[in-house]
């Protein structure tokens, strides 16, 4: 059974783009439920990015099962820490910014 697809706009900045071939913005389509019957959550999206988009050094994007400390995530301009972090359910048309605040890459 195929799951319906949702569109997500991803943005990478603050130096994070170098992990993605210098691509700063990308619209991707992912399944609305990566782990059926549960809907796709932030945790799934981060893993999906690691598996599908990262060109180099995934350890500079993730530590353990979450984002590397020092990388900010904004979901439609709202701090993901207010939105429940990994538990946030991705919606169609979400704008998700990944913003590195790290000094040393």
């Amino acid at each position: 059974m195929t799951q319906p697809l949702i569109k997500v706009n991803l943005f990478f900045s603050g130096g994070l783009e170098i992990l993605f071939d210098n691509i700063k913005q990308k619209t991707v389509e992912i399944s609305s439920s990566i782990n059926p019957p549960n809907q796709t959550k932030m945790e799934d999206l981060i893993k999906w990015i690691r598996e599908n988009l990262i060109k180099t050094k995934p350890e500079l994007f993730m530590t353990g099962n979450t984002i590397r400390p020092g990388i900010l995530i904004l979901i439609n301009d709202v701090d993901w820490e207010v939105e429940g972090e990994l538990e946030y359910t991705i919606k169609d048309g979400d704008n998700i910014h990944f913003l590195s605040t790290l000094h040393g890459g």
Partner: peptide, 25 residues
Amino acid sequence: SKEIGLYNHYLGFETVFIPSLTSLQ
């Protein structure tokens, strides 16, 4: 740095990416 990242983001400021000696290390 989180506050600064958010501030710049909301004001739409572009920053220049400066590689460091330890980038990608």
